[in-house]
Design a protein around this nucleic acid. Structure first.
Lengths: 182, 182
DNA sequence: GCAGTTACGCTACGGCTCGTAGCGTAAGAG
DNA sequence: CTCTTACGCTACGAGCCGTAGCGTAACTGC
């Protein structure tokens, strides 16, 4: 934090006059990075849109400062509810709009059916968000392997296929079996 | 750490005679929890197997100590390569065997085709692992919503559907469209 | 030009936690 | 009965977050 103040050319006390704690500053910094680097250009298909955002997100996470800062505040948010809420409103909820946009486009293209029940729609959007963000974060940070175009393509293929085939979410446990291999 | 020593009824110095640092101790503790609580009983179908392990994993992660400890070391591993390797060998690689077991069972049931190319098989297993672990972690820690049976069912449905439909990983970008809604 | 408010810089410090040094002591090996 | 091994204990150094207190510059309104 002394370092941050030094690099900003201000005194440490000034930082604490603008942010109540280090964590809040880091959350705002990470949120700004996310807002700046994440977007969802229309690449013509749901699969391509997912590939694009996955690669953008991975590129952001592979920067050492980004991943260190993000994981530090997420880790602390497990024992600080106020921090968790701040992360949600400043980062998570904002980026969730990308999922809504992507679904809207896919529905306009006819790639995904429209869902009338708004609660089901919201739950599905949350699921998609958790799957995309979780998978990319896990791969880059825990598995520590790079997210390249091939991985993005395979991942997007699985997700698109899964969304197309099984989401009505009735009770049965096996409406599976299909072509092409694992 | 003084607390850990106190609760263990030993002196703090004794802890440092067995573990070189706090992080190593935490990694070993989390690894033991994972080994103890994660297993993959045969529930009759790939979908049900995934649901089961997702619920087990989520139950483990919802315990405050588990998630705090896990995320703390993962966060620090972003700036400590030795710690990252220790996490990989003590936790990640061990639990990855669950994916291999689940796939083996699914192949024996005929739910998934066998894959001859071992490299493709390994990459797919890694992908499945990242998707399952990442999605559950992201939902419980970032989205901060509970993983209940309904979520597990929907998630497993999407994953099974995705694995069944699109994984040969050719170039095309749209072999989707199907029944049941998003 | 002048008082009053606002915001900043700076030093010093308290508090917390990780990790270590040094020494005394109990238990098992031969 | 010695020797080794492992443990307990106190004290301490180091690093970082966050704050107190005070001096100082700039900007406002008249």
């Amino acid at each position: 934090m002394g370092d941050v103040a030094a690099r900003a050319g201000v005194a440490k006390t000034t930082l604490y006059r603008r942010w109540a704690s280090k964590n809040e500053l880091v959350v705002d910094a990470v949120a700004a990075l996310f807002d700046e680097h994440l977007e969802l250009p229309d690449r013509g298909s749901l699969q391509a849109d997912i590939e694009g955002v996955v690669l953008r997100f991975a590129a952001l996470l592979e920067r050492p400062e980004t991943k260190t800062a993000l994981m530090a505040v997420v880790a602390e948010s497990t024992r600080d509810d106020a921090l968790r809420d701040r992360i949600r409103s400043a980062i998570v909820d904002r980026q969730k709009s990308l999922v809504l946009l992507g679904r809207e486009r896919a529905q306009a293209r006819g790639e995904l059916p429209r869902e009338d029940d708004p609660e089901v729609a919201a739950r599905t959007a949350d699921l998609i968000f958790d799957v995309i963000a979780g998978a990319v974060v896990h791969r880059t940070l825990v598995s520590a392997e790079s997210v390249d175009e091939e991985w993005a393509r395979t991942f997007a293929g699985v997700l698109v296929g899964g969304l197309g085939s099984a989401t009505g979410a009735r009770t049965p446990d096996g409406l599976n079996s299909s072509p092409s291999g694992v």
